[in-house]
């Protein structure tokens, strides 16, 4: 009927199709859209606002800015962490509910499948992150500059890709739904708390600082803070480089595991 010459590793139509599916699924479940925004909103409103009333100006890393300004990029980072990891890990859902099978027997390269799917998940994650930025601005956070904001989007993409790859690795290695949420929380929450999203890295003792340096989200949050607010613990190039390497490594590993995963 149709001749499809060489099977391409990168196959635009299926990639687009997978992307579209993620978007449709995201937008269709209104409760999920709202739910995914509530948690970051609570952090900003119930942690950020009250804390900003406290005199904390002398803490290193917080000089001259309100706590809410400090927290907002951290919460954007948190949104990306949760949404990215979930996007990668939800492969397990597709597998459990059989949908994946149908995709995996289609004459499409696995890489295209996972690329499209991940791009879809990342798109929704970044939309959520941008909404959080909007909410933060509405609450009184001032952004540093327009180029900074654009750079922040680049950091968002890198952060999100890193955690999508990470989620994918967990999902493909774990293989089933049992204990899935527990394990997710066990891994994701420490990553969030130790990322410097809630408190500045600089003001921590060195042993804790070293732990935080190992946390990928530390660089994501710091990069976002540097680009959005204009203060950061590390130079921007460092955040960028670390994230780029991490995201390439994790995304490659994740899609490799996915391609090796059994369809059944």
């Amino acid at each position: 009927m149709r001749a499809i010459g060489i099977r391409r590793i990168i196959d635009p139509l299926p990639i687009y199709t997978m992307w579209l599916r993620e978007m449709k699924r995201f937008l269709r479940v209104k409760a999920r859209v709202v739910g995914s925004l509530l948690m970051p909103l609570f952090f900003l409103a119930f942690l950020g606002l009250p804390m900003s009333f406290m005199p904390a100006r002398q803490i290193p890393g917080l000089e001259g800015i309100g706590y809410l300004d400090f927290l907002a990029p951290g919460i954007v980072g948190m949104t990306l962490l949760f949404a990215g990891t979930m996007s990668g890990a939800s492969v397990i859902w597709d597998k459990e509910f059989g949908f994946l099978k149908e995709v995996l027997v289609a004459p499409v390269s696995r890489f295209s499948v996972i690329l499209g799917r991940s791009l879809g998940g990342m798109t929704t994650a970044i939309i959520q992150a941008l909404v959080i930025v909007g909410i933060a601005v509405a609450m009184g956070v001032t952004l540093s500059s327009v180029p900074g904001f654009l750079l922040a989007i680049v950091i968002m993409i890198l952060t999100c890709a890193t955690f999508t790859g990470f989620g994918l690795i967990i999902a493909t290695k774990l293989g089933n739904l049992e204990g899935f949420m527990a394990i997710m929380n066990l891994i994701v929450f420490p990553i969030f708390f130790l990322s410097g999203a809630l408190f500045p890295v600089q003001s921590m003792p060195s042993w804790l600082r070293y732990i935080m340096y190992v946390d990928p989200l530390t660089y994501g949050v710091d990069g976002l803070r540097g680009t959005l607010i204009g203060i950061s613990a590390f130079p921007l190039w460092l955040d960028f480089t670390v994230l780029l390497i991490l995201c390439l490594a994790l995304a490659t590993l994740g899609s490799y595991f996915f391609s090796k995963m059994e369809a059944d």
Binding site: L13, P14, R21, K24, G98, V105
Partner: peptide, 26 residues
């Protein structure tokens, strides 16, 4: 193939599922 277990995206409509499949088959 029609699998033994349900393998259809329940969040999408029937037509979207068919569309999806057709696209995956180029």
């Amino acid at each position: 193939i029609v699998f033994q277990d349900k393998a259809i995206d329940t969040f999408l409509t029937g037509k979207e599922n068919l569309d999806f499949h057709a696209r995956m088959y180029h």
